[in-house]
């Protein structure tokens, strides 16, 4: 048993470590970028909503429509559509680098809705109080919406990270690198069941780690 493990690690250890790093790198970079886009979209959606701080029916429905569109395109199709864009921006549609653009664009609308629903948790009374003290719209976004929904935003970020790990694994099967790539390449094409199982186990551990860390932090900072 130990011999088997030693041989296995000798043979595939580096590969598994490298592809774990690749997956994490691609996913965290894409999550960061998706959050920059997604928070922007969510803020616009929130403040332009009817009865909100700056009601703008047209902008609100156009952005809402774009976000829904983005969410309804199946990820695999989005991946293919974005190949040229990815080549243009990062120079490739393959590997870790190549997976960043599709992951970001795929996640941004999802993030927008998740962040929007975190904003919904902020009591209307808190917004009104901030307004009454003369807070500007920017201050309300920054000091009330984002600050007051922080625990919820962290929980949402964990959901996004985990979803993207899943997407990244799909991309792996199409040359996107990372753990999904290893699982498919060795497990599926070369009948190396042990490598596939190892890759899947690492994915399971990653997901668990992300979820429990996020839960821990969110619980610690949530003062409600």
């Amino acid at each position: 048993m130990f011999d088997f493990l030693r041989d296995f690690i000798d043979q595939y250890g580096d590969l598994l470590v490298q592809s774990s790093i690749d997956t994490l790198l691609a996913v965290s970079l894409a999550t960061t970028l998706a959050y920059i886009l997604g928070i922007l979209l969510a803020v616009v959606l929130k403040i332009t909503a009817p009865g909100s701080l700056k009601p703008q029916v047209l902008i609100n429905s156009v952005i809402g429509w774009i976000v829904n569109m983005g969410r309804s395109i199946p990820f695999i199709i989005l991946m293919v559509i974005l190949i040229p864009l990815s080549r243009m921006i990062v120079g490739t549609s393959l590997g870790v680098l190549g997976s960043i653009i599709p992951l970001t664009i795929g996640a941004a609308p999802f993030v927008a809705r998740i962040v929007e629903s975190s904003f919904e948790e902020v009591p209307a009374g808190s917004i009104e109080a901030a307004q009454a003290f003369g807070a500007s719209t920017f201050q309300i976004i920054w000091k009330v919406y984002l600050r007051e929904s922080l625990p919820s935003l962290i929980r949402g970020a964990a959901i996004t990270l985990i979803t993207l790990i899943g997407y990244q694994a799909i991309m792996g099967a199409f040359g996107g690198g990372g753990l999904g790539d290893v699982a498919v390449r060795f497990g599926y094409h070369r009948y190396k069941g042990d490598v596939m199982v190892a890759a899947v186990l690492i994915l399971i551990v990653l997901v668990q780690l992300i979820q429990s860390t996020a839960d821990l932090i969110a619980r610690k900072i949530d003062k409600r």
Binding site: G125, S126, E128, A129, A132, K223
Partner: peptide
């Protein structure tokens, strides 16, 4: 608005 204080029925403190 900064010069006019206001308090509310449900207090409306910032929970965090």
């Amino acid at each position: 608005r900064g010069k006019i204080g206001m308090i509310f029925q449900d207090f409306s403190l910032f929970a965090q």
